[in-house]
């Protein structure tokens, strides 16, 4: 018993040195040469820093909207809605989102709204929307910004990530930054 205890204490101390100090320091050191130096990948626009992987809230009609979020895209925390599929209150929320979307995008049929635009993501920080999620917002953006539809389609095509495996997607932040740049150059 006593022998086991001293071994347990000493071995734990060795493990602390190896796994709490050396291992994290080693990875931290390697991270210094990675993109973003281990602090997350960032994009700088007009002197403002943005995190490429962290979604942002877009509520104004001038921008492509992100998905609904349970934490309003504040990355100080992260969470999903955790609403069950049969929860009546949740289904009402989804219905309200559909109605709001139709109000801001007149002329769009319900069948054109993809489900990702009316459901909240798991992290509440989802940086992406589906391709259809961007296409369905074109008319609104065209009207407000005066950018031609074909140009918007091209922009979406350019920002579509079609990987070999996994779903197609669009980074909303990058798309909106490009959108602002089109208006600036005009």
């Amino acid at each position: 018993m006593k022998k086991n205890l001293t071994t347990a204490i000493r071995l734990t101390l060795v493990c602390i040195v190896c796994f709490c100090f050396l291992f994290p320091l080693l990875i931290w050191g390697i991270a210094q040469v990675s993109p973003g130096n281990g602090k997350g990948e960032t994009i700088v626009v007009n002197g403002q820093k943005h995190y490429a992987n962290i979604g942002q809230q877009f509520v104004s009609d001038r921008y492509f909207w992100s998905r609904p979020s349970a934490v309003n895209y504040n990355a100080a925390g992260s969470a999903g809605s955790n609403k069950g599929p049969s929860n009546p209150e949740y289904l009402k929320t989804v219905q309200n989102r559909i109605d709001t979307f139709l109000k801001h995008n007149p002329g769009i049929s319900k069948e054109a709204i993809p489900v990702d635009l009316v459901t909240a993501s798991g992290s509440g920080l989802d940086p992406h929307i589906s391709v259809q999620g961007a296409l369905v917002q074109i008319e609104r953006i065209e009207k407000i910004r005066g950018i031609d539809k074909t140009e918007l389609r091209k922009l979406i095509e350019k920002h579509t990530e079609s990987p070999l495996f996994g779903p197609e997607k669009i980074n909303v932040l990058k798309l909106n930054i490009a959108l602002d740049q089109i208006n600036e150059t005009k």
Partner: peptide, 20 residues
């Protein structure tokens, strides 16, 4: 229950899921 609301649910059940 969401299909009944008439939106396009080709992506499946996306509540709580990430697009990527």
């Amino acid at each position: 229950a969401i299909s009944h609301m008439g939106v396009n649910q080709l992506a499946g059940n996306m509540e709580g899921k990430e697009v990527r």
